[in-house]
Design a protein around this nucleic acid. Structure first.
Length: 422
RNA sequence: GGAGAGGUGGCUGAGUGGCUUAAAGCGCCUGAUUGCUAAUCAGGUGAGUCGUGAUUAGCGGCUCCCCGGGUUCGAAUCCCGGCCUCUCCGCCA
């Protein structure tokens, strides 16, 4: 969340964030509430100062054996007045924080202004689209022909949006997860973390899924837990309420988890096959950095995610999300989109974001800087990468004219073979 | 699920209504001293917020001892409710 002091000093930034990201908070009203609260504070704190001083005098007088009944009665009245003002102040404060939690993060100055994904800015492309020397089958046809994928069975057990992988399909998923984790741990210096998949509500508040996006998550109401929509939630909250030392930064953690998403309201759009699912696997990258270094950390984070695609010999591009497409908590986001030859389009496999101190403020993650001051860290995360769409691209790109799938060199040690169906 | 114990600053840990302005220790910072990455001594060292002020200073107030209520002139301390942690038992992959 944004700091009330910052909003007070620069209300235009908050207004801009609300407007560009389609928020529903009235910043003017928020400022008025803040004004009222501060006025109230001045009054009530003055009363409390009087009460404190007078109570001390009462204690002294009682010790000296003097009568203090009159002062006690007067302070009783002051106490009542304080109670009333305190209650009013608490009400206003609750109204303020409710609004603060719903104000989105301010887009970074380098983020293109725009409404939809059409306004995103392409930064670069890597590799070439697969050659068109033969008719490419899509991942559904390939998955069916090779016995890798069973969507009908997923629908029967759990509904649409769930899938079974079988045989080499399941093995491919496992190999990709292991490959990515080994890459990030071995070459990019991340600590591997295995985390809970169910979390308490305050964790979702910390990373920004709550209060605005509760409908997007599966809730286990009986136990007041949410199924994680991404490992970002536990991996970031691993550090909640921590006081880190400056030399502990940057912190790099990676982990694999299933991700659960209700995808409410997104039916019918690009949902074919493995494109959009209620449950999928993902390897996540999370960084905590010094505030001065988060923007450069976003660049390396994105490159680290890109490395996965390069090693897997997959064509991709990187785009900067425009203001309207930018997530609630993010100040700047790069999407990595992999080319799916049969689908004939780029599929998002990673979203790399810098949240600045937006999440750190909510989750209360601070560090002691060189000057001994406590400051909020900056948090970043990115997929490294999401499995189903990665598998779509891999199957469709590396299919051979004979119907088999070539396993890219880098993946073979983990997969244990150089092709599927070859 | 049952029984018990407990939640106090960066950490350990005292504190059963006003002498707490939270002891002491550790850690950290500054200085002194000793001819050498150590020892000793002295001093300092929490967070949030409001006001004032101001090149991020300084000064003053208020709040904060898990959270929320209550009692009281006054609560870390007493009462009620909740959350969490630990130990043992039970159950269990």
């Amino acid at each position: 969340m944004l700091d009330m002091k910052t909003i007070r000093a620069e209300p235009e930034a908050a207004r801009r964030a609300v407007e560009l990201k389609g928020g529903d908070v009235d910043v003017g009203e928020l400022l008025a509430l803040d004004e009222e609260r501060r006025g109230l504070l001045v009054r009530v704190e003055e009363l409390k100062a009087r009460r404190n001083a007078e109570s001390k005098r009462i204690a002294e007088r009682k010790k000296a054996g003097e009568d203090a009944a009159e002062a006690v009665a007067a302070m009783k009245a002051v106490g009542e007045e304080i109670k009333g003002l305190d209650a009013r102040e608490a009400e206003i404060e609750a109204a303020i924080s409710e609004r603060l939690l719903r104000i989105p993060n301010v887009p970074d100055a380098t983020v293109p202004v725009g409404a939809t994904e059409d306004d995103n800015r392409e930064e670069r492309r890597w590799g070439e689209p697969a050659d068109a020397s033969f008719e490419r089958r899509d991942h559904r046809a390939l998955g069916e022909a090779l016995g890798l994928l069973d969507l009908q069975a997923g629908a029967r057990t759990s509904g649409t949006g769930f899938y079974f992988l079988r045989g080499a399909g399941a093995r491919l998923e496992r190999a990709l997860i292991a490959f990515m984790l080994d890459l990030h741990v071995g070459e990019h210096g991340y600590e591997e973390v295995s985390s809970p998949y169910l979390v308490r509500p305050h964790c979702c508040l910390g990373t920004g899924q709550l209060p605005k996006f509760g409908d997007d998550m599966y809730a286990v109401e009986r136990d007041d837990l949410y199924l994680i929509p991404t490992a970002e939630v536990p991996l970031t909250n691993l550090f909640r309420e921590q006081r880190l030392t400056v030399d502990a930064l940057p912190i790099h953690v990676t982990g694999h988890s299933p991700c659960f998403r209700r995808e409410a309201g997104s039916h019918g759009k690009d949902t074919s096959g493995l494109q959009r699912l209620h449950q999928f696997h993902k390897v996540e990258l999370v960084k905590l950095t010094h505030p001065d270094r988060s923007m450069e950390a976003l660049e390396t984070l994105t490159l680290e995610a890109e490395t996965v695609l390069q090693r897997l010999e997959l064509h991709y591009r990187v785009v900067t999300l425009c203001t309207g497409d930018l997530g609630f908590a993010s100040a700047k986001t790069y999407d990595i989109e992999v080319w799916a030859p049969a689908a004939g389009r780029f599929l998002e496999v990673s979203s790399c974001s810098n949240f600045l101190d937006f999440q750190a403020r909510r989750a209360d993650i601070r560090f002691r800087d060189a000057d001994k001051k406590l400051r909020y860290v900056h948090t970043l995360n990115g997929s490294g990468l999401a499995l189903p769409r990665l598998m779509i691209a891999l199957l469709e790109t590396h299919q051979q004219p004979d119907g088999s799938i070539r396993i890219p060199e880098a993946l073979r040690p983990h997969f244990g073979a150089d092709s599927i169906g070859g």
